[in-house]
Design a binder for these strands. Sequence first.
DNA 1: CGATTTACCGCATACGATTGCATAGATTGC
DNA 2: GCAATCTATGCAATCGTATGCGGTAAATCG
Lengths: 347, 347
Amino acid sequence: MMDEHKSDRRQQPVTMRDVARLANVSQSTVSRVLNGADSRIPIGDETRQRVMEAVETLGYQPNLHAGSLRGQKTRMIAIMIADLSNPFYHPLVRAAQDVAAGRRYDVMIANSDHILEREQHFMESVMRRPVDGVIMVPIHLSDDDLETFIGRTGTALAVLGQHVRHPEVDVVFGNDDLITYDVITWLHAVKGHEQIGFIGVTGSISAAARRFQAYTSALEDAGLQFRPDVVQLGDWSPESGYRAMQRILESTATPTAVFVCNDLMAVGAIDAITQRGLRIPEDIAIVGFDDIPAASWIRPRLTTIAQFPKQMGHALATMLFERLDGLISGPGRRVEVSCRLIERESA
Amino acid sequence: MMDEHKSDRRQQPVTMRDVARLANVSQSTVSRVLNGADSRIPIGDETRQRVMEAVETLGYQPNLHAGSLRGQKTRMIAIMIADLSNPFYHPLVRAAQDVAAGRRYDVMIANSDHILEREQHFMESVMRRPVDGVIMVPIHLSDDDLETFIGRTGTALAVLGQHVRHPEVDVVFGNDDLITYDVITWLHAVKGHEQIGFIGVTGSISAAARRFQAYTSALEDAGLQFRPDVVQLGDWSPESGYRAMQRILESTATPTAVFVCNDLMAVGAIDAITQRGLRIPEDIAIVGFDDIPAASWIRPRLTTIAQFPKQMGHALATMLFERLDGLISGPGRRVEVSCRLIERESA
DNA sequence: CGATTTACCGCATACGATTGCATAGATTGC
DNA sequence: GCAATCTATGCAATCGTATGCGGTAAATCG
């Protein structure tokens, strides 16, 4: 008598057949009533009425797994981002979710934490549990990986990342190399910095690598010398930015400005600087990247390069759904979203 | 010749039957080889070999939708949080994801943005696309809603939120009312504040409501007068905290301390105060709630009440999987995770 | 050496929904 | 008045996988 209700409570979910039985029609008729789109076959008004009532009283919900199996659309897309804790990705996910919600699609979010294995696991996971479309921010995945994925599933794919050049995937990317070049040049020519440091991230195909390239060529074009000890690597996290800046401060030649590859690391870097008793931007100027909300919470307010993740997410989702709807079927498109320098107090 | 490869590329995914054909066995044998757990029926070594090879060469991946249909486990859990952009939830999600990954489960994340309709939509969505378990942070959903959900699906459920009292769901919650009472008392008795404000959030069953209750009784027990004009409501966002604090500052009686129901709003509140030319904590002391990373990024560093979302997420996921594994089947358990005041500079 | 067990495997069905085809009655055309 | 058309519905196959049951050959037993 204690928990008897537990066992008989497990009433199995109501299926179409249950609805059909109650409405005194066949299961196929129920299906046709619900997916009214099948306009070639008409349904009697009175029958439709009975079915809808039965659906109401039973609280029927279609089992989407079944529909997916039958080869239908799953009405679900998957999004993989690189770091759930990085505010940069939130507007991107949000925008994509909004577009998806408008189409009555569900969204499955995954995050890779910048780890290759997690990216691979995501792809396998999506192959086992097919979805209609995938949006992702791959850091390590190569075009070959994407190729096997597309080859095996035929799933529409939209990615954020300039390094992706697969002919069938839509790509969104920022002009971060260009803006990095410009900002380094600006630090030198306008702000008068002669020694400019750089905090990046390991990996050869990541955005950080492209920014590093831009950094070196800007130095070269400005006639500045490249000093390896003012270039340090982190892992996108504030803590790693803190440690990277510490290493720079311990080096023989302290720079008067440091370009940091994202705002989270910049936060850590600023901590390291002020903790050393140095002033920003008087002693060392800092420029970040992303323009996350916290950039204007901290003091001094962070001068940073704004990306526009909301627009990126919107573009990704829009292109993805264009493909799902069959509106577009050509080769992958490439959409550039321009970055912009936001001048605040740290540089 | 341009894009001819586009049309014939859509090779449908490889199924078990394909594997069976290649290995010269029946489809059921393939199934048994892969789910070795079916130990009642033995498989010949040589056959197993052939099957595994076929799986390899074809790159077979099981279609989990089919398994789900067949009544098997979906190997997927869903998590609904209240705000993707609130860092408080990140460790919670992360911890749950880690536990799930350890069990080789996939995770589907959704966020409600504190909106009732989104919460309902999430539940419907999970009913249509069944999962093995659900973790959520409901703000508006009542026990009745949970009841219909459990009744219809029989899905295991673990939630964060003290207000949930459904007999079959596992609940994790913080002792936020207690700590709020203590901190208000501390602000008065130790810090000497006579006029203490409060920035909360609308809604009668949210955590903010409980904290408000604790606030009023602490005032009463301290013999302090309750002043409605120093109590303002926001929506958990920094902007709303900014506006709430503005309204407080415009009121006739300005408090010397303000208790803010979460750190994001506290950030906005601090902005409003400093922008007014007032100093923290000398003119107005601020106490936040959550201890998000940014609490120690801003200046002055935010004194706040730490919750431990990582432990919460771990507890939620652990309890959920205990139920999925059948280790536990009794009534819902309630786990309290204690909060703790982190004294920094803002109070 | 015949009978029973054992090891191994295939057949067929079910899960819940979609959809081509068949069919029953009603209506129209000539 | 009978064929042709239309309307409204049911039947049955199908998607990919799991599994109860039955079947065959080899092995063991008495």
